[in-house]
Amino acid sequence: MTLDDLRVFVAVCRAGNLSAVARDLGCTQSAVSQHVKRLERETGVSLLERQPRGVVPTPAGRILRTAADEGITGLDLALRRLRDLADGETGSVRVATGATTVRHFLADAVVAFRQRYPRVSLEFFTESSSRGCFDALAGSELDLAWVTLGAPVRGIEQRAVVELPWVLAVPAGDPLADRAHVDAGELRDLRLIRLPPNSTSAAHLDAACAELGVRFGSDTSVADWDTAFLLAELGVGRALVPALPGHGTAGGPLRLVPVPSLRPLSVGWAVRRWDALSPPARAFAQTVVESCHGLPATPGPSASLTPRTTPPPPARSPAGPPPGAASSTGSGGPPVR
């Protein structure tokens, strides 16, 4: 039994498909199967059950997967820390996110973090959705993912940072543009620009509208929030979207009309384990919290990273200065969805 065997087995359990894991690893399906068979020989039990559309872990497989997940997470953390020690004062923070996220939520924090820790490498990786971010966290050395918070995900901890109210985005000449607010009931049977299909934000909006007995149609859909704002500004249609910084400024071509009766949307951080974050990753996550809450991005007392279902504890500063590292690299990832 090797670490590679366990990593491949966990990946197969997550994907539910041997060929998909083979593509990701750049090897053959037979090679993936050999990793699993070696584990089955050594454990003496069947670990996977074949089904028409793939494979699922057996009861024994679920036990091994849980243990392997925990062990691999701890080992990855140890290896990261050993590399930091070997490199001296070096390190990196790896974040799954996107252009919309960086522009609207992380930009000020990136600048503040770079000023405070100029030798730490910031690396941004592209994922197409919150679900993709969760999968990337579970299967790689990523530290953090900025996501739209949704249902609990096994092996992932989510913590809210910002609550985004819903607004109706309309062009300046729209009959609703000068309204102080719009009741969700007024949207009933309207045709609106649709949020990304199968996204967390769309599911949240559907649930919030269902609570109020509101349904609306759509003849246009988009892949991210910024596109919804742009199409509304161009007069293509009205969009029900989360309020984001930089849109709907006074006197501009786009107006945002609050819809206070809809439950706000939570966005924030997702990680494998908060207590396993490296000092640089924890410091970056905290810097984003400070920036989003309008607090000075300094090492002093600040808003804490708190679980979304738990009242905030007394504020504490990040633990000690992190080991630094080289310059930032990479580009944005997916819009928060």
Rank of each mutant, 00 (worst) to 15 (best):
I63F: 07
L244M: 13
W166A: 01
G251R: 12
R83F: 03
L3I: 15
A86I: 07
D87F: 04
S218F: 11
T100F: 04
V102N: 05
L137Y: 05
H35S: 14
S302Y: 01
S317W: 06
D135Y: 04
G217M: 08
G251C: 13
V120M: 13
E127G: 06
F229P: 00
G333V: 10
A78T: 15
F284E: 02
V55I: 06
V257E: 01
I72G: 01
A207I: 03
L137S: 04
I193K: 02
V120R: 00
H293T: 09
G324L: 11
H35A: 14
S46W: 08
A151D: 13
A208S: 15
S328R: 09
A325W: 03
D206M: 07
R114G: 08
G88A: 11
C133D: 15
V170N: 04
T306C: 12
V214L: 03
E40R: 06
P253N: 08
D76V: 12
S266Q: 15
R337G: 14
A15E: 11
L75C: 08
L277N: 02
V161L: 11
Q286K: 04
A31N: 09
L79V: 15
R159V: 00
T148R: 04
Q158K: 09
R238L: 08
P165E: 01
A232L: 07
Q115E: 12
E42D: 13
E42M: 11
S19D: 11
E89T: 14
L85W: 12
L176Y: 05
S221Y: 07
L75V: 15
V110I: 15
P175I: 03
A285R: 05
L39Q: 04
R81K: 13
P323H: 12
P321R: 10
D135N: 13
P334M: 05
P258C: 01
L205K: 06
R316T: 13
P307W: 01
R50T: 15
S92E: 15
V214G: 00
R273T: 08
S121T: 13
R103D: 14
R191E: 13
V236Q: 10
D189Y: 10
D224V: 01
A297D: 08
R103P: 03
P335H: 05
V21N: 04
